[in-house]
Design a protein around this nucleic acid. Structure first.
Lengths: 103, 103
DNA sequence: CAAACACCTGAATACATGTTCATATATGCA
DNA sequence: TGCATATATGAACATGTATTCAGGTGTTTG
């Protein structure tokens, strides 16, 4: 009805997905994990140390990130190595770090 | 002590700030609000309609965004017009939209 | 095989977050 | 001045989320 403006309103469904993506990045532990994984393949135990959380908590977080297809895992013996699955995310995080850094 | 790898571990404080930034963008209503504000100045009532939430809820969300310095407000008569305060965010959101879009 | 190790999982818990509701403030208008 | 409009606010409530805890699976090693 009200047809006053043709703004850059994005579709609600797109908004939901964008918000989901940002929410997946909205936790300090996950940011530490992902940024450590940039250009590196690291197992769960070491990721837990890096993020300063228990291995169980790390495992839960990694499941989230896997389900969001941000990281992928590879089993090697009894260890599981994680790496970045989505290179666009590297870029997003890098920009956010830069943004936070000089200000 | 353990000095095995010189990875790109970011500082925990930086991680917290980056996570806060992403969390501020981790809600569909806020994404709709911010994306509508790109290149536009819009008042609370209209933003509420755009995001499909009540004016009260919009006001709460806008306070969040103001506190995060992502948007700024300007009072004009009895209406309050909001606009983007941080142009870097436009870029982040645009990238996230692109990323979500083609996939 | 048994024990140690690395990781995963579900339930429980504590805390964060978004919305609603009632109310307050502030501006414009008759 | 009195009333409608636009926005802000705090409390209450419901829902979401991160961690811990207690186990469970699969793998290596002695």
């Amino acid at each position: 009805m009200d047809e006053t403006s043709n703004l850059s309103r994005i579709d609600e469904i797109v908004a939901v997905h964008v918000a989901e993506l940002f929410r997946a990045l909205g936790d300090a532990s996950r940011i530490q994990i992902i940024s450590a994984l940039i250009d590196n393949e690291i197992n769960v135990g070491e990721l837990a140390k890096i993020a300063g959380i228990s291995e169980s908590a790390a495992s839960h977080q990694l499941r989230n990130l896997r389900q969001m297809r941000l990281v992928k895992s590879r089993k090697k013996g009894r260890e599981v190595y994680y790496s970045i699955d989505d290179d666009h995310i590297t870029d997003l995080i890098q920009r956010a770090i830069d943004h936070v850094a000089h200000e």
